[in-house]
């Protein structure tokens, strides 16, 4: 299965949300990483067929997804950032309703199976408005997975969740079969490291990198420095240097992480880069 974005661009008036996105995806988990306003949701909406691109198209195995129509929608599962499910419906009703929209009639056994997968079977008779944030997201995943889609799109699935729920979510994604293309947009780096096969870096509407986390961290090898400094001096340094970040604090001193092509300070030492450093490098002025 090959999903291709061919020169996707999207403009809203004068603002260009996406600029010529060209990427090829096959089975696996892809994390779409970028800050707010980088075009993640726009790209996902275009893939989902909800938004029309200004130019370009998306193809699946050579076929345009728009002209595929319902054939494409049958293999698509989508969880937007704020799905807005109906507050008066119970968990079971929502699952059955959206399954029916996909042309699937779920039996009681299938409902149990799907809700068990996201640990919501005990809440099946609870109304949506009474669910916690984490439960709502898990229900969203169950709904997106109804019909066993081949392409799964998750937009900021862990935004607003506590660490326990985020871990639970990662476990769920890990448990989904690897015969799918899973794309999830996030700006939370820790979500990516444990589950994503590849990372797509999106900055101001352009894809600046698509590779594994290992490749990405290797690409900035030698550009990540660590340094211990007095607190006051450190705060002043961080204000003046966008590629610097305080990573730990002590009684009088702090540890700084600095993204720089050259040794920034005499006592700075090379540090092993992480995905967070990659984010800093590309999005927080580290490139400069």
């Amino acid at each position: 299965m090959e999903l291709k974005f061919n020169g996707i661009s999207k403009s809203y008036g004068r603002k260009e949300a996406l600029k010529g996105v060209d990427i090829n995806l096959s089975e696996g988990v892809y994390a779409l990483l970028g800050p707010n306003g980088s075009g993640k949701t726009t790209l996902m909406n275009i893939l989902a067929g909800v938004l029309r691109p200004s130019s370009g198209d998306v193809t699946l195995d050579g076929r345009d997804t728009v002209s595929m129509g319902n054939d494409f929608r049958r293999i698509l599962g989508y969880l937007p950032q704020d799905p807005g499910f109906y507050p008066g419906f119970t968990v079971e009703e929502l699952l059955k309703y959206f399954a029916s929209l996909k042309g699937i009639k779920l039996s009681s056994g299938e409902v149990k199976e799907k809700l068990d997968f996201v640990n919501l079977y005990d809440e099946r008779r609870t109304r949506y408005k009474a669910l916690s944030g984490g439960m709502k997201r898990r229900l969203g995943i169950a709904i997106a997975l109804a019909g066993d889609p081949k392409i799964l799109i998750l937009d900021e699935p862990t935004a607003g969740l506590d660490p326990k729920e985020r871990v639970r979510f990662r476990n769920i994604i890990s448990g989904i079969g690897r015969d799918k293309i899973i794309i999830y947009a996030t700006h939370i780096v820790s979500d990516i490291e444990s589950i994503a096969d590849r990372v797509i870096l999106l900055k101001k509407g352009e894809v600046i990198d698509l590779s594994t986390t290992a490749q990405m961290t290797a690409s900035i090898e030698g550009s990540v420095w660590s340094c211990v400094m007095e607190r006051d001096r450190a705060e002043e340094y961080v204000e003046q240097n966008p590629g610097a970040l305080i990573t730990s604090t002590g009684a009088d001193t702090v540890t700084l992480k600095i993204i720089s092509g050259e040794r920034p300070l005499p006592d700075a030492v090379n540090a092993r880069p992480t995905l967070e450093d990659v984010y800093m490098y590309h999005f927080l002025g580290g490139e400069q």
Partner: peptide, 21 residues
Amino acid sequence: SEYAAGSRTVLMTTPGGREKT
């Protein structure tokens, strides 16, 4: 209500969420 809640987006991605709904 679908526009207000944002559920239209999800409906548009399903085969039955467009014309049938």
